[in-house]
Amino acid sequence: MHSVMNTLMDGAVAADLSLMKRVAAGDKHAQRVLAHRLAARVGRISQRLLRNRADAEDAAQMALIEILRSSGTYKDISSIERWADRITVRTVLRHARDQRRKPWHFSSLVDVESLGAAPEEPAQSEETARPVEDYLQELPAARREVLVMKHSLGYTTEEIAELTDNPVGTVKDRLVAARKQLRKLITRDARVRARDLEKTS
């Protein structure tokens, strides 16, 4: 059983390497195959890192192009997805930096869209009233980025520091601040929901 698994794994790795070599050689069909394999994931990461939908779509396209163009640098030490994640994060963050060159203007506005706006009736899910994307939308960019890199992509604080060109201490501070703000949002949602429920009953 063990050897069968190993054989399958080796086969998958070899197939991935072969795919990436074909992409690097400019094989249009291979490019399309790789793009289809990664597009949904790249799109989701971009959407989570950026608040603006149009920016996210633009950044996702740029990230996919970067991935296709960097295919020659792929080594089989990690999965294609993990390798592509780093390129996606770097590209999207670069895009985000270009978009916000002003130090304090609107970027620090917490989008409270629907913050206190919990449903009038009990939420369908007993546990959370809102999808996680809604919460992410409400965090300032720097906090949202570290939160996504930590909890969606599983990077360590050191890896995040490297990807964002920030000191580890800054990353830790932002991560804790992001978690505190998220907690505040979740707690507030629950409180408002309870109050409205009380009124309607």
Partner: peptide
């Protein structure tokens, strides 16, 4: 529990299946 569920959601659903949006993304990118 509510907070932990949010983090679970964050960690769990990156591997989405290809869909209409991702196909459009591929076309636009290429």
């Amino acid at each position: 529990r509510e907070e932990l569920v949010v983090y679970e959601q964050l960690a769990s659903d990156l591997d989405v299946q290809p869909n209409e949006a991702s196909r459009a993304l591929v076309d636009a990118t290429l």
